[in-house]
């Protein structure tokens, strides 16, 4: 069943149009990856979904209802969260406060407590550092915190924008393993944006290739991995 649908979405900034009629669909339980070169419009797509960048044309449905007219906080309330590119940790807040803000819209204290324990079990280092300021964490720890903060909202759909950016290969593999685990164990649907396509295609069910604001290929992940054009441009083979 379709959890998220983008129909002919166009969006941009000022005079620049970035997205030219993007159509894609994410089904419940899937991991979908959106790959594309730097500047293709991947982050803009996620920001449009989250309600930060307004649409110029087209529509976005989440759980069957249009969300492109809603303010960002209502989209979060419906169960759609984003870990933006560059992590965006609140630098002057402690690790614990960053996590608390992830659950900003929740009222169920016990559920929050449980999810806090869960993210601390995923990333024990965050528990050790819980009283430190977010701005003082290393890049890898910040990425763990960014993902954990989003999980604190208990999302049904998680948007991840280049979670591997700037991370050492080992840390990247660890993050990807956890993304798969969240998807399996919590049944959280995931839309994963990556420039480094090989890892994300291996983790995903299906993938879309974005070029200059247009979807140029949409296929099963293993078919994309075998696709000669994709291999040449995005996998560096």
């Amino acid at each position: 069943m379709a959890l998220l649908e983008l129909h002919e979405v166009s969006a941009g900034y000022g005079n620049i149009q970035v997205l030219h009629g993007v159509t894609l669909q994410v089904d419940e339980g899937e991991i979908i990856t959106l790959i594309g070169a730097n500047g293709a419009g991947k982050s803009t797509t996620l920001m449009a979904i989250s309600g930060i960048v307004p649409l110029r044309r087209g529509s976005i449905l989440f759980k069957g209802r249009p969300i492109h007219t809603l303010p960002p906080e209502q989209i979060v309330r419906l169960g759609l969260c984003q870990v933006p590119e560059g992590r965006h940790i609140f630098p002057g807040l402690t690790v614990r406060e960053n996590l608390d803000l992830g659950g900003f819209l929740r009222r169920d204290r016990q559920g929050i407590r449980k999810d806090l324990d869960f993210v601390f079990s995923l990333f024990p280092v965050l528990h050790e550092r819980r009283h430190q300021l977010g701005g003082n964490l290393s890049g890898g720890e910040q990425q763990m915190l960014a993902i954990s903060r989003a999980l604190m909202a208990k999302p049904d759909l998680l948007l991840l924008d280049e979670p591997s950016m700037g991370l050492a290969p080992m840390l990247t593999r660890q993050i990807f393993a956890i993304i798969r685990r969240i998807n399996r164990e919590h049944n959280t649907t995931i839309l994963l944006v990556e420039q480094k396509a090989s890892l994300s295609l291996k983790a995903a069910n299906r993938g879309y290739v974005l070029e200059n604001g247009r979807i140029v290929i949409a296929d099963q992940a293993d078919a994309l991995l075998a696709n000669v054009d994709v291999q040449r441009v995005y996998l560096g083979i």
Partner: peptide, 24 residues
Amino acid sequence: RTGKAMRATAQDRTMAMLVGISVN
């Protein structure tokens, strides 16, 4: 809650929106 939302908004407005804070 409001105080935390204020600090978050002052530090990173886009991220504040992404965690569900009504910036208005």
